[in-house]
Amino acid sequence: MSMLPDDLWRSIMQIGVETKTLDYKSLCCLSITCRRFRRLAFEDSLWSPLLLSDFPSTTNNSISRGKAKNLYQIRYEKERDKKRLAHRRAVLRIESEIAVHLRKIREIKLRSLEEKRKMNEAVGELLNLHRIRGASVALNVWQPEMIRSRQREMVQQTNVPVHVRINALEMEVSLCKQQIAAFDRAIQFQKKKRRAAEEELDSVKYHPLQNLQNTSGHSSGCRVRSKRLKGTSD
């Protein structure tokens, strides 16, 4: 390899850049192998096509005013900082979504507990009314002296007809059960969305410098890429 002239190595590198088999990383790796490759890899004839290819907004006038490699480094650092900021915004957005899901889950659980408390109170009152109905039947069938004083007090303290109140309480218990079931479904839905957001967050953190301009909603694309990487590693 040391016997080959510089023009031949320069042509090989130019062909690699033109065919896109040599990128900026490859040139940087070549530049640290030896002094000769370092000198050849820093030439503008190699970095100018890379600069125009990777950063199409670059003009020929800007290349002529400075070293192509230095301009590439400046553009690359700006793009890297932009991607890091986009990554940080994406992480903050997903973390806020997770926090919202957790808050909604807590709120729904509190409402479900309140509904269960109301249902338990209705069930307790319903049991007492059934006892009152039994006491009323006993008053009509048995002799008054055979009725315990507690049952007599329960009958006397009832202002609303027992059967009307029992029907109302049974309807209230049924509505409470339906509401609790709806709360349980809402909790499961919020947990599912929270898990999806957590998976998206893990995927974004696994690829910190990817293009995050279109990362909204669920991270289906990110998860597909993650699965592909795992498949290739296996």
Score class of each variant (00 low, 15 high):
Ala182Pro: 01
Trp47Arg: 07
Gly66His: 03
Lys109Val: 02
Asp234His: 04
Leu169Trp: 01
Ile187Cys: 04
Ile12Asp: 07
Leu201Val: 02
Glu198Pro: 00
Ser96Arg: 12
Lys25Thr: 10
Arg111Val: 03
Ser53His: 15
Ser203Val: 09
Leu27Trp: 03
Ala86Tyr: 00
Cys222Tyr: 02
Glu43Ser: 11
His130Trp: 06
His207Ala: 11
Ser136Ala: 09
Met119Ser: 15
Thr59Gln: 11
Leu113Asp: 06
Glu43Leu: 12
Ser220Leu: 00
Met146Gln: 10
Glu43Pro: 02
Lys25Arg: 11
Val137Asn: 08
Asn61Ser: 13
His101Lys: 08
Gln210Met: 08
Arg65Tyr: 13
Glu115Gly: 06
Ile180Glu: 06
Asn167Asp: 13
Lys78Ser: 13
Leu52Glu: 00
Ala197Tyr: 02
Leu22Phe: 10
Ser48Gly: 08
Met13Leu: 15
Ile74Ser: 11
Ile32Glu: 15
Glu170Met: 08
Ala168Asn: 06
Leu102Pro: 00
Trp9Arg: 07
Glu77Arg: 01
Arg106Phe: 03
Arg36Asp: 07
Gln143Phe: 09
Cys34His: 12
Leu113Pro: 00
Arg75Asp: 05
Gln143Glu: 14
Ser48Trp: 02
Ala122Glu: 06
Ser96Asp: 10
Gly231Lys: 12
Leu126Ile: 01
Leu30Pro: 06
Glu121Met: 04
Arg80Gly: 01
Lys69Met: 11
Leu92Phe: 11
Ala186Pro: 01
Arg35Tyr: 12
Asn211Leu: 03
Ala182His: 12
Ser62Asp: 15
Glu170Asp: 05
Ser226Val: 02
Arg111Tyr: 02
Lys83Ile: 00
Leu212His: 02
Ser226Phe: 01
Lys192Ser: 07
Gln151Leu: 07
Arg228Glu: 14
Arg111Gln: 06
Tyr206Phe: 10
Leu46Lys: 03
Glu114Asn: 12
Leu175His: 08
Gln178Lys: 13
Glu199Asn: 00
Ile63Trp: 01
Phe42Ile: 04
Phe183Lys: 00
Arg117Ile: 07
Gln73Glu: 15
Arg195Tyr: 08
Arg152Tyr: 10
Lys192Met: 05
Glu145Arg: 10
Leu113Glu: 05
Gln213Met: 04
Lys25Ala: 11
Ser174Lys: 10
Asn128Arg: 08
Ile132Asp: 10
Glu77Ser: 03
Glu145Asp: 11
Gln210Asn: 08
Ser53Ala: 15
Asn120Phe: 08
Thr158Arg: 13
Leu8Val: 14
Thr58Ser: 09
Glu153Gly: 05
Pro161Ser: 08
Ala182Phe: 06
Val155Phe: 01
Ile15Asn: 15
Glu199Met: 00
Lys177Gln: 11
Arg80Val: 01
Asn167Ser: 13
His101Asp: 12
Ser112His: 07
Ser112Asp: 12
Arg185His: 14
Asp184Val: 05
Ala186Ile: 00
Gln188Lys: 15
Val137Trp: 06
Asn128Asp: 12
Thr21Ala: 15
Leu85Glu: 14
Lys82Gly: 03
Ser53Gly: 13
Asp23Gly: 11
Asp184His: 07
Leu212Ser: 02
Ser57Asp: 10
Ile108Asp: 04
Ile132Tyr: 05
Pro208Arg: 02
Ala41Pro: 01
His218Gly: 03
Gly217Phe: 09
Glu77Lys: 01
Met146Val: 10
Lys205Met: 12
Pro49Ala: 13
Ser112Asn: 12
